[in-house]
Design a protein around this nucleic acid. Structure first.
Ligand SMILES: Cc1cn([C@H]2C[C@H](O)[C@@H](COP(=O)(O)OP(=O)(O)OP(=O)(O)O)O2)c(=O)[nH]c1=O
Ligand SMILES: [Mg+2]
Length: 692
DNA sequence: GGGCATTTTGGAA
DNA sequence: TTCCATTCCAAAATGCCC
C-alpha cells in the first residue's frame, strides 16, 4: 500500500495533498473531485502555507511508520492477548447500550449563505460564498457544485468558480436567525443542546411519547416549523444516541431528514459501512493514521482490528474507537458548561516591523478587552499566540496574580510576551484570556475569595439542582480541576467518545447563554444553574460581529459562573510565571509506548539511527539536525550542572525539547522550532507511539 | 506523588 | 493585485514546587 501510494505521489502529487475540505460533504455529489484536487494543489504548491503543511505531513508519516513497525513486532501470542482484551472491552461497552432514547440532530443548510440569501434574494440561484479572498466560511449549494467549500481560501474558490460572489460575514444576522431556530427547537425539547449557531441536539423521547407520534413525524414537523419561522431549510437526523444522530442529519442534507430505528440491528447495519471520518471526533489526522497503519476505513473495520487498536492506543482512545465501531454514543443530557476562555486574533500581511506589531497587539488587546467587558469577565491567564510568516504557530502564556480585563492591562502583559519574541516576522497575533474569575468586579483578591466563598454556597445549591448531576459543576467550590475531573471522569473520554459533547459546552441553551431573550443579560450567575425555563434566561451575546472577517462567532458561550480557584498557586514568582516553548505544527496521537530510558552521557547514534540519550530517531542524512540535536543534549547537561534553578526556562526555551512519556517510559521527541532567527527543526521520533 | 502552569495537538463550526 | 480565518474545547505531556 505504501509503495503504491508513493508511486501515486510522484505521478499525481495532488492526490496526496489533503485539506480539511478534501473530505466529502453534502452538495458535492456531481463534483469532479480529481479536477478540484488538482486546482487546489496547483494553487497551493510552493506557498509558505503549503510548505508548512508538508512539514506537518512528514511528521505524521513518520509516526505512521513507527506505528506500523510496532504492529509488525507483535507476536501471535501478543495478538491473541490483545484480542481477549478487546473482546472483554467490547462486551463491557455493549452492556451500556441504551436504545430507550430518541435523539434528533438538526443542522441548518449552508447556514451563513442561506441567511445572506434570505436577506438578499438576488443572490438566489447564483454561486456564492460567505467570507473573503483569504478564507470563506461557507458556500451555498450552487457554489459547491464547483467544489467550493467552507474553510477554503477565497482565491482558490474563485479559481474553481470565477463567477463566485463573495459576501462578507455578518454575525449579527446569523445570531438573529439562530435565535429564531432555537425558539422552534425549544418546543420539542426545552433542554435542547445547541452545539453551534446552526446546530442542535434534541431529546425527543418525551415529545414522541406525549403526543403519540413517531420521531419521523416530529422531524418533519420540526423542519417545517423552522422553515416557517426563519424561511431557511435545515436537515435532521434521528437515532438512539447523539453520535449517530449527527451522522444521520447529513444523510439527506440538504432539506431532508433520516430516521434510524431504535434497534440494534439497524444501528449496526448503518454503522458498519460508514467511513470513520463521518464520525464526530475523527478528523483528517486520525483517519489518515487508522487507514495507513491498520487499514481501517469504516466503522466495521474498527471491530475487525480491535486487537491491534488495543495494542497501539491508550485506554480512552480504545474506548472511543470501539464505541464508534459498536455505534454507541451518549444518550444523556450533559451538564451545562461555561466558557473557559475568550480570545481575539487577527491575521495580517507578514511584517517584522516592531512598531507595527505593537500597534496590532494594541488593537487586539482592545478588542479582547471589549469582548470581556460585554460578558463581565476577568481572567488571570493571558496567552499570546503568534503565527510566523512561515505559518509556524507559537503560544506564550503568563498567569498573573491579578484578574484583568482592561485593554491597558492586557496590552501591558501581552506586549511583554511579544517583546520576548522579537525580532520575528509575523502574520498573526492573538490574545486569549482564561482562568476567569467568576465574581462580579472586585479587584482585591482576598475580598474576592471571601465573596466567592459566600456566593458559592448559594450558587452551589442552584447549580447542583441542575438537570442532571453528572457534573460536579459546583460540588467542589474551590477546586476547579477536581470538578473538571469529575466532569470528564466518565467511562469515556468526553472529547473523543462523543465529539458532540465538545460542542455542548457552548451553545447549549443554558440559562445564561446566548439565546434570544435579553432580559437576562444581566442575570446573576447565582441563578446560573437553575433551569426551569432555560431559554428565558438566555442573553443575547453577539460576538463582535463583523469584527473578524470570517470564522464563527465565538460560541456564544454562556457564563455559568463557577467559582474559580483563588490565587493560591500562582507559583512562586512575585510577578508572574513565564514559560515558553515553540514548535511548528505537528500532530500527535496518543499511543502506548515502549522505549527504554537512556542514561546520560554522550550523544551517539545507536544503530546509526537512534540517539543514545533520548531514543529520538533521526536518520543519518539529517546531518545538521543531528548536530543540533547533539548540541542540545550538550547544552542540557551544562545547564543541569551549572544552574539548576534556571533549568526550566532555559530548557524550555531551547530549540529542542525532549519529552518522556512517564507511563510508558518511552520517549518521544521532536525538534521544535527554533527561535526567531533560524530555522532548524524537524523532528524525529520516537520509537513508539504515544497514546491516542 | 499531587497540584499547578504551560504548550501542543486535533477537532469542530 | 490578492496568495489559507476565527473561536473554542479537551487531552496529553512536561516541568516546577511542594
Ligand atoms: C465548517 C465551517 C463552518 N463555518 C460556519 C459557516 C457555516 O454556515 C456554519 C455552519 O457550518 P456547517 O453546518 O458545517 O456548514 P453549513 O451549514 O454552511 O452547510 P451544510 O449545509 O453542509 O450544513 O458555520 C465556519 O465559519 N468555518 C468552518 O470551517
Ligand atoms: Mg449546517
Amino acid at each position: 500500500m505504501s509503495d503504491n501510494k508513493d508511486g501515486e505521489e510522484v505521478s499525481r502529487p495532488w492526490q496526496s495533498y489533503h485539506t480539511v475540505f478534501t473530505n466529502a460533504k453534502a452538495g458535492m455529489d456531481g463534483v469532479d473531485k480529481e479536477k478540484v484536487q488538482k486546482i487546489v494543489y496547483e494553487m497551493s504548491k510552493g506557498s509558505k502555507y503549503f510548505e508548512n503543511e508538508e512539514r506537518k505531513e512528514a511528521f505524521i508519516k513518520q509516526k505512521i511508520e513507527n506505528m506500523r513497525a510496532q504492529c509488525a513486532k507483535l507476536t501471535v501470542m501478543d495478538i491473541a492477548h490483545y484480542q481477549t482484551v478487546a473482546d472483554k472491552k467490547i462486551a463491557e461497552l455493549e452492556v451500556t447500550r441504551d436504545l430507550s432514547k430518541t435523539w434528533l440532530h438538526v443542522d441548518m443548510d449552508a447556514f451563513y449563505a442561506a441567511v445572506e440569501t434570505k436577506e438578499n434574494p438576488s443572490l438566489m440561484g447564483k454561486p456564492m460564498a460567505v467570507g473573503g479572498m483569504s478564507m470563506i466560511s461557507t458556500a451555498n449549494y450552487e457554489a459547491r457544485k464547483f467544489g467550493v467549500r467552507a474553510a477554503m481560501p477565497g482565491f482558490i474558490a474563485r479559481k474553481l468558480c470565477p463567477e463566485l460572489i463573495f459576501v462578507p460575514v455578518d454575525f449579527k444576522k446569523y445570531t438573529h436567525y439562530s435565535e429564531l431556530t432555537r425558539k422552534v427547537f425549544h418546543k420539542y425539547d426545552p433542554n435542547f443542546i445547541a452545539s453551534s449557531l446552526d446546530e442542535a441536539y434534541l431529546d425527543i423521547t418525551e415529545v414522541c411519547k406525549a403526543r403519540g407520534i413517531s420521531s419521523e413525524e416530529i422531524a418533519g414537523e420540526l423542519r417545517a416549523g423552522v422553515f416557517e419561522e426563519t424561511g431557511l431549510t435545515c436537515s435532521a437526523g434521528v437515532a438512539p444516541n447523539r453520535m449517530i444522530a449527527k451522522v444521520c442529519s447529513d444523510i439527506n442534507k440538504p432539506n431532508g431528514h433520516f430516521v434510524l430505528p431504535n434497534n440494534r440491528i439497524a444501528v449496526m447495519t448503518f454503522i458498519s459501512s460508514l467511513p470513520i471520518r463521518k464520525i464526530g471526533g475523527i478528523g483528517k489526522v486520525t483517519e489518515h493514521i487508522l487507514k495507513d497503519v491498520l487499514g481501517i476505513s469504516t466503522c466495521e473495520d474498527i471491530l475487525h482490528k480491535s486487537a491491534y487498536l488495543c495494542a497501539l492506543f491508550s485506554h480512552s482512545s480504545i474506548d472511543f474507537f470501539l464505541s464508534v465501531g459498536l455505534g454507541l454514543g451518549r444518550t444523556d443530557t450533559p451538564q451545562v458548561r461555561s466558557r473557559k476562555s475568550i480570545s481575539s486574533e487577527r491575521t495580517f500581511s507578514a511584517t517584522e516591523d516592531e512598531a507595527s506589531l505593537y500597534n496590532k497587539i494594541a488593537d487586539i488587546a482592545e478588542s479582547l478587552s471589549s469582548d470581556m467587558q460585554k460578558e463581565d469577565l476577568r481572567g488571570r491567564t493571558l496567552t499570546l499566540k503568534l503565527k510566523t510568516a512561515s505559518f509556524e504557530v507559537r503560544t506564550r502564556a503568563v498567569s498573573l496574580q491579578k484578574y484583568i480585563f482592561s485593554s491597558e492591562d492586557i496590552m501591558h502583559h501581552g506586549s511583554k510576551l511579544l517583546k520576548a519574541e522579537l525580532p520575528v516576522s509575523l502574520r498573526l497575533i492573538g490574545l486569549r484570556m482564561s482562568h476567569f474569575h467568576e465574581d462580579k468586579p472586585s479587584p482585591d483578591p482576598l475580598q474576592r475569595t471571601l465573596t466567592k466563598f459566600l456566593i458559592s454556597g448559594n450558587a452551589s445549591e442552584h447549580v447542583t439542582h441542575d438537570r442532571n448531576s453528572m457534573g460536579s459543576e459546583s460540588s467542589s467550590t474551590f477546586d476547579v480541576s477536581d470538578r473538571e475531573k469529575g466532569l470528564h471522569g466518565d467511562a469515556y473520554r468526553t472529547c473523543l467518545f462523543d465529539a458532540d459533547d465538545e460542542y455542548d459546552y457552548g451553545d447549549r441553551l443554558n440559562p445564561q447563554q446566548s439565546s434570544y431573550f435579553e432580559h437576562n443579560s444581566e442575570s446573576s450567575y447565582i441563578n446560573a444553574g437553575e433551569i426551569e425555563k432555560p431559554y428565558l434566561r438566555c442573553q443575547t451575546k453577539v460576538n463582535n460581529p463583523e469584527r473578524t472577517g470570517h470564522g464563527s462567532p465565538s460560541k456564544e458561550v454562556g457564563d455559568l459562573k463557577r467559582v474559580d480557584m483563588e490565587s493560591s498557586s500562582v507559583s512562586g514568582q512575585s510577578e508572574a510565571t513565564y514559560v515558553q516553548r515553540f514548535e511548528s505544527g505537528a500532530n500527535i496521537l496518543h499511543m502506548k509506548a515502549t522505549l527504554p530510558a537512556n542514561e546520560k552521557g554522550q550523544s551517539l547514534w545507536v544503530d546509526d539511527y537512534k540517539c543514545s540519550l533520548c531514543g529520538a530517531e533521526l536518520p543519518p542524512s539529517f546531518v545538521e539536525e543531528r548536530q543540533e540535536h547533539s548540541d542540545y543534549h550538550f547544552a542540557e547537561m551544562l545547564q543541569k550542572e551549572e544552574s539548576p534553578e534556571n533549568c526550566r526556562v532555559s530548557i524550555q526555551r531551547s530549540s529542542q525539547k525532549v519529552q518522556i512519556t512517564k507511563k510508558n517510559g518511552q520517549k518521544k521527541q521532536k525538534t521544535s522550532l527554533k527561535d526567531s532567527k533560524h530555522i532548524p527543526i524537524d523532528l524525529f521520533f520516537v520509537k513508539s507511539n504515544q497514546n491516542f
